[in-house]
Write a protein that binds this DNA or RNA. Structure first.
Lengths: 221, 221, 221, 221
DNA sequence: AATGAATGAGCCTTCATTCAT
DNA sequence: GATGAATGAAGGCTCATTCAT
């Protein structure tokens, strides 16, 4: 795995000349905000810093968002939901084995969220949900519940077909997903203390344990 | 499991004015601080609130801690390390099977940390480590590394004896521990959105998957 | 002398909200700060009061000065040095008698500093130098040493020409200047207890004593 | 002049055993307070520091003084008045020349006040009088006016006898006294920037200028 | 649309003062 | 008398928000 550690489509802070696509502006702002919210937390992030990182002035933020809290909401609401739709689609069409489907699902999540800047959102929700119950509820209803539904389908499919042992599905979902979440949480917290787990190996070990744990007879089907 | 959801030996806010208890005070203050830091985050927690929850005035905090940051450090440095020593001891003396040892270890962690107020510390570290690199380093060196060492011994013991399949130990540690961490993180975040996983079932499912995943032939050795 | 007691070009407190005048602001702020620091002392002066006197809000101070201490430094560093350069110039070009030069020098100091708001600076230095060694050093090096040098030239000139008796020049400088300093110090302290010395008479008496004391034969050369 | 620079009957910070003369305590406290008020100013001096320097606890201060301001008043009201009475006495009895009497008077002031810890009081009055009009008034009425009266007598005596030229007495008093005041002010302010005037030489130069300035014919009568 | 000077509410921190021991 | 833990009002400083340009 010789790609750069964590690909971050970083916001270009090069202050472009005046003309700019109106529509692109807000997402540049939320992108900058996401990075800083994840890094410092909501309360400790100053709007000055967000503006600076996005290459605009502080006042400009208020042209697009009513308040700091509104910006926070926009950060969360943006970008993850579309990916879920794709996952739901993918899963519905899949023809192969459930084990492969599960593996594929988790890998996709890692590639499209865990590895990207979007991974900051779960970390943010974990850190700030108590301060923003409304946002937390939104995230829960629109991301978590739907994500769980996808997972549940896969697990149900595997159990129905006999590929998977029968377990309590709802807790199994969380157990299975936890390592992925911890991996992204890690990226934004103690990762910086020198404990740099290699994601590829981590995922491989997780799958290994998971497949042997789920499937009744042998590990590799 | 008919005990109260999450036992929290809440700080008695009975205001007994001007009592002299210089010894008890610091831990009462850190307990109140921990609760609020976990709930709101460091920056969003006001010292007034901490003082109020501990039943003292704001100025009193400064009799025991030099600053808000010093209080934060004290919160983290207090209370987890002793439990680690106990775990190390327990593990060294254990005579039974490695599977049982592993299960015991994780259960103990849940009972003594995950279920108690101390579980806030990992959540706090996750949320704030970037803002307090020094504290994060302390936690990493004194808690995480030692915790990993205990886990590593158990896994190594099981692999040496043939009870466990051979895996990359260092990533396995994290994979195995992740669900427990997520369970406590959950307690302090989206738990409040109505998604109330039952810890007992969760742990049982985790162990089930884990045992089948780790042990070569059959699930229950 | 029928001009108003002590002319103070007081800061116009007319609140013209949100005017943009980034250039004029700093000196308006230091002027207000000087007045209050001199009146109450550094520690007893509140930034609210300074802001109010300058007709701005408290936060505005921080757009121009990093801290209360930085404001203090700016107050001291501003305004006296330029006058010294003028004095040095004047003295170098002077053609008349040394007695007249000395009288001129002291009168100029009184008119350009002692009588104006700038006179607060020496009083401030006297009161606060122990708390701000760095500022005191700056003032010593850039104001006092240069001022002494000017005085020394004049005295040396007079002694060389035989107009003045020979005295220990370095102590003479201080002895001669002391009454002027006390006069300004007085203005900002016990002046308010009803002891209102008339500056003109005071200066005249000082010159009288000084001329008779310095010149060998008769008083008026 | 080989005595130590500035003799200060420093407060012994040796914490003596419990028993102590009741009466001595308050003057130890005011002595410690004077030192710190002079050094840092009233507002910037903490009662903790005063108590520490006096070797007592903070609460003890309130056994003797009602408030910080009361302590300040006590500091000023203590110790100078008795010396004035002595000066008045001395002057009334004096038989020699007025020049010698004047010189004696100023020297005594220097030895008994200027050189000692009491010299801090004038500096304190200069710095703080605006904040404590009541104390300033007290000082003005009980110290300054009486001091001026003594000076006035001496000058009047000399003018009456023809020893001194005729000048405006009230301004002459201030002019003549200014260098002494500046000398003590200096001791507590910029003295610490390395500009260490030698008091003996300073006084000698002052007397030299003064005698020549005051006396009609020749310098030394 | 974009800027950035200005605002003022709010929080951390200090310290004079009190009072139970 | 003496102590020092506790208090709470006050002040320095920050920063989200506004608005004239």
């Amino acid at each position: 795995m010789n790609k750069p550690a964590f690909p971050s489509p970083a916001v270009s802070a090069t202050r472009a000349p005046r003309r700019r696509r109106k529509d692109a502006r807000p997402s540049e702002l939320t992108a900058a905000a996401l990075e800083l919210f994840v890094e410092k937390g909501f309360a400790a992030t100053r709007l000055d810093d967000i503006a600076a990182r996005a290459g605009v002035s502080k006042g400009t933020l208020y042209l697009y968002f009513d308040s700091k809290e509104a910006l926070f909401k926009a950060v969360v609401e943006e970008g993850i939901v579309p990916l879920l739709a794709a996952a739901e689609q993918k899963m519905a069409e899949y023809q192969g084995s459930s084990v492969d489907l599960l593996r594929l699902l988790l890998l996709r999540w890692w590639e499209q969220i865990g590895e990207t800047r979007l991974a900051g959102v779960p970390k943010l929700i974990i850190s700030e949900s108590r301060n923003f119950p409304e946002v937390a509820q939104y995230y829960h209803d629109n991301v978590i519940l739907r994500g769980r539904a996808v997972m549940r389908s896969v697990l149900q499919r595997g159990m129905d077909s006999g590929e998977f042992r029968v377990l309590d599905i709802d807790t199994a979902i969380d157990v299975i997903f936890s390592p992925l979440l911890m991996l992204v949480v890690w990226r934004f917290s103690l990762y910086f203390c020198g404990q740099k787990t290699d994601p590829a190996t981590f995922l491989q070990t997780h799958f290994d344990l998971l497949v042997h744990g789920l499937c009744p007879q042998k590990g590799k089907p």
